[in-house]
């Protein structure tokens, strides 16, 4: 039997390998653009200097493998390149491309912090709420409460994020102006104000994620309550509270942790649409804008960040569930 340390190390290595391969996939996808995309993207009106700058920046005359290694090397050093939009702007202004323009990294950093803030606020509301509701629904399964929660969660899973967002805007921002519908966040805001402006997008995301998390928690608990050792505990005359806390919970930990991390990973995707609806200055909104104007370096960088966050969350889920498995923690 492999020790638990070995299993975790192997999982970590697999995670890093996946990240590496995903970076190759993203790199190849971008290189599947037709022709000399420096020209294609900047359009006919671009100055020759701008085209030349991008060509030089991307080293288009070099072989694919060399370009990938160079790109990866710079990525690992935090150099995500320069946004086309910025480069274009810089070339119009007439300065040298590297000196005046804001790099992608500089552009992304504050937005990435904003997105993390939004995801964090959502997680703080959604996790306790959904786990609590899920456990309650499992305990009172078949009751009116369970059915109501079931229908409610199905509806909110099925709705597009922008539908939920506009319903919330309608009730909480337009009819009863309790919360602002635009989340114009800027540097140097106080925490309270920032939280206040983030609340509506966070509530929208909460609706989406809570429904998923709650359903999965409920399923995990019901699965567990059907196991023979729970029946055994009941037949030993153990009270319902202790059955839940001592017999069910230690075994439910792994599935619940799994549910939470998977849904936090899902949040990464969910932020994109919600950020656009609320004009929230996060990485998702930047991503969509860059996709529209085909700003390749930014798209590439955003994609990599989203994928990395997603992979790391899944990695964390796996490692935590390995750690909470008594069979692995106490080998024979």
């Amino acid at each position: 039997m492999a020790s638990i340390g070995n299993i975790i190390l192997r999982r970590l290595a697999l995670g890093i390998l996946t990240l590496f391969i995903v970076s190759i996939v993203i790199f190849l996808a971008v290189n599947a653009l037709p022709g000399d995309f420096a020209q294609a993207i900047l359009g006919q009106g671009a100055t020759p200097e701008a085209v030349e700058a991008i060509r030089r920046d991307l080293g288009l005359d070099q072989p694919l493998a060399t370009r990938y290694v160079q790109w990866l090397w710079r990525m690992l050093h935090g150099d995500l390149g320069i946004s086309f939009a910025q480069a274009n702007f810089a070339s119009y202004v007439g300065s040298a491309s590297d000196a005046g323009a804001v790099t992608v990294a500089e552009q992304l950093a504050p937005r990435f912090r904003n997105t993390l803030f939004l995801a964090g606020v959502t997680a703080v509301i959604a996790v306790p709420l959904s786990v609590g509701l899920g456990i309650l629904a499992a305990l009172y399964r078949g009751s009116v409460f369970d059915r109501g929660v079931n229908i409610f969660s199905l509806v909110s899973i099925s709705s597009p994020e922008f539908f939920l967002a506009y319903v919330l805007i309608l009730f909480l921002a337009v009819l009863d102006p309790v919360l602002p519908s635009l989340s114009n966040i800027y540097e140097g805001m106080s925490f309270g104000e920032r939280l206040f402006k983030t609340l509506l997008p966070a509530l929208t995301l909460t609706l989406v994620v809570t429904a998923h998390m709650m359903r999965m928690t409920r399923a995990a608990i019901i699965n567990l309550l059907a196991s023979p050792y729970i029946e055994m505990a009941r037949l030993k005359g153990i009270g319902p509270l202790r059955v839940i806390l001592w017999h069910a919970l230690p075994n439910a930990l792994a599935p619940i942790i799994n549910v939470i991390t998977i849904n936090l990973a899902y949040l990464v995707t969910g932020v994109v649409v919600v950020e656009v609806v609320f004009v929230y200055p996060g990485i998702g909104q930047l991503f969509v804008d860059s996709v529209k104007i085909r700003d390749i370096p930014v798209v590439q960088a955003c994609c990599l960040i989203f994928a990395a966050a997603y992979i790391l969350m899944n990695l964390a889920a796996d490692i935590l569930s390995i750690l909470s498995n008594p069979r692995l923690r106490h080998p024979k």
């Binding site: 996946t18 996939v25 993203i26 899902y266 994109v272 991503f287 994609c303 997603y310």
Partner: peptide, 12 residues
């Protein structure tokens, strides 16, 4: 390993 919507946006 790449979130679906993100991958779709990249390919689009």
């Amino acid at each position: 390993a790449i979130p679906a919507l993100i991958f779709a946006l990249l390919l689009m």
